[in-house]
C-alpha cells in the first residue's frame, strides 16, 4: 500500500496560542519580504527547528522541499526548491519573512503562510473539512518560526 493521501500535508497538529511579548501574526512588519525583528525576542532552537521542518504533524516542509540533512525522514517533495544552502542564500531576516509569509517575498507563492491568521477563503478546522472555529491559529507558533529560522540558518553547502 502507498502512503495515506490524507497525511501528505498534515501540518500543525495542535492549535498555536500567542503568549505575551510576542509579535502577533497581524502585527508582523515585512520589509521587502523580510522580517527584521525576532517574533519572540528569544533565540531560536535549531535542533527543534530541524524536527519541525521534517515532522509531518508540525511544519512538514519536506512535503514540498528536499533537505539532504533530513535524509532519515522518508519522502521529500519536489514542489519547492531544495533547501540545502538556504542559510547561505538568505539572511536570517529573509528566512523569517519567507517562513512567516512566503507570499511577501515570492509573489503568489504556493508555499503556505505559516504565521498568518487572516485573509483565507473557507478556512477549515485543521483537516476535518469543517469550518474553522474560534481555536483557529497560525500554522506554527512564533517560537516555532524562530526555531525553523535558526535551523535553516545552519543549512550551508
Amino acid at each position: 500500500m502507498r502512503p495515506n493521501f490524507l497525511a501528505i500535508l498534515v501540518l500543525a497538529a495542535s492549535v498555536q496560542t500567542v503568549s505575551a511579548g510576542e509579535i502577533t501574526p497581524t502585527a508582523v512588519v515585512f520589509t521587502d519580504g523580510s522580517v527584521e525583528e525576532s517574533l519572540t525576542g528569544l533565540p531560536g532552537d535549531a535542533e527543534k527547528g530541524r524536527e519541525i521542518v521534517g515532522d509531518k504533524s508540525l511544519g512538514n516542509c519536506v512535503a514540498c522541499h528536499e533537505v539532504s540533512d533530513l535524509a532519515e525522514v522518508p519522502f521529500h517533495g519536489e514542489i519547492g526548491p531544495m533547501l540545502d544552502g538556504a542559510g547561505e542564500r538568505w539572511s536570517e531576516a529573509e528566512l523569517r519573512g519567507i517562513v512567516a509569509n512566503a507570499k511577501m517575498m515570492f509573489e503568489d507563492s504556493l508555499m503556505p503562510s505559516f504565521y498568518k491568521t487572516e485573509g483565507f477563503f473557507r478556512p477549515g478546522n485543521a483537516y476535518t473539512g469543517e469550518a474553522a472555529d474560534d481555536t483557529f491559529g497560525p500554522l506554527l507558533s512564533a517560537q516555532q518560526i524562530e526555531d525553523v529560522v535558526a535551523y535553516l540558518s545552519t543549512l550551508k553547502e
Partner: peptide, 20 residues
C-alpha cells in the same frame, strides 16, 4: 483553506512532481 492551494496548484502547476 489555510494552506491556500487551488486544484491548479497541484494538478496543473505540479503534476509529475512528488508532494511528500
Amino acid at each position: 483553506g489555510q494552506l491556500e492551494l487551488a486544484c491548479a496548484s497541484c494538478h496543473e502547476q505540479n503534476y509529475g512532481n512528488m508532494i511528500r
